[in-house]
Write a protein that binds this DNA or RNA. Structure first.
Lengths: 176, 176
DNA sequence: GCACTGTGGTTGAAATATCAAGCACCTCTG
DNA sequence: CAGAGGTGCTTGATATTTCAACCACAGTGC
């Protein structure tokens, strides 16, 4: 029971390996592409995800920790990033009424405007990098696969509050 | 033609949006999970990718820029990371004969040993986080989707040299 | 051979992320 | 209500990443 050395691991088959590799590289390329496109507007993808998430929420506000879970970032990281966004005037911190420990991050009007503008760029970016190259049905499969993974890794993550609104939505559909 | 404001962007449909969100969150969760498991061995996923890639290459060596492309990292980043790995004695730099500008990163015996040990952990990690939660056929679909994306974003990226060896491979099948 | 331009890789400083405490408040128990 | 232990968020130090030069060499045209 010394250095955990269980029996032979369940190595991947050639197919599995190929698919896994494709995933790993693809996911990095996607991040790279989306990030680069947003850079031109002075934000990183992770920053955009934050304000975008806020913009879709009922009163454009979310508790820090909820938001951290939604975008899969550490609380510490979110704190630092929020401070940066605050300095740009895109978000503002508000004390939480019910729970005095809590802090709500609120999107400012300026922030809302920024998101709306960037959303236009970002959605094209997503289409070019991800949607266009993949046949529609296959893309939905991909979504299902990822949903299964999410379910396994973080069963009780708060829901993204995907508004089931219209299909031809306006700027509110900012996250993509 | 002032502030690039083309017509209405092609917003995502509800389904597309849902799938895209699932992807984004899932991919972050995967990274988080794999990274955490490797942390216990003192490496990050991105570091592991590097030495793993080296271990699968003919003479356990690759040019810096080729390697950078393979793992989708900036050259600068690879330079820094390579230095760190070098300090741990896992890789060594060697001058390139044909091209005197070039540098080859070579996996040391110590590095090889490290990869082989970590591979055992990592492969289980990948199974738990990704393979197990997704039905086999769906996972292959995911691989196909990502391959299509790779083709669109980086058509002429060097090939990962996935050795078409046996299916029940030993430690060489390190990347997963 | 000498410029000129491009590529491969590195460097150091600035930006960002991680990690380990820490503080303030909440909740539960007695 | 005191105290113990937990949660929410922040802080500051450290580690990593990015960004903008930079140097050395390769390739091309003269």
């Amino acid at each position: 029971m010394g250095t955990s050395s269980a029996g032979e691991p369940r190595w991947l088959t050639t197919d599995e390996q190929r698919a896994w590799r494709a995933y790993l590289r693809g996911s990095r390329l996607i991040e790279e592409a989306l990030d680069k496109d947003l850079q031109s507007h002075g934000v990183q993808l992770t920053e955009y995800e934050i304000i975008s998430m806020l913009s879709e929420t009922p009163r454009q506000r979310l508790r820090m920790s909820t938001l951290a879970d939604l975008v899969v970032q550490s609380r510490s990281r979110l704190t630092h990033t929020a401070t940066r966004l605050e300095n740009r005037g895109w978000v503002r911190r508000e004390a939480c009424l019910e729970d005095k420990r809590g802090v709500e991050l609120v999107l400012t009007d300026q922030g809302q405007a920024a998101v709306e503008e960037m959303a236009r760029v970002h959605v094209e970016s997503v289409r070019r990098a991800v949607l266009d190259p993949v046949p529609p049905e296959l893309f939905l499969e991909l979504g299902r696969a990822m949903e299964a993974i999410r379910l396994a890794l973080a069963p009780d993550l708060p829901h993204p509050a995907v508004m089931a609104e219209a299909e031809d939505q306006g700027p509110i559909a900012a996250e993509a």
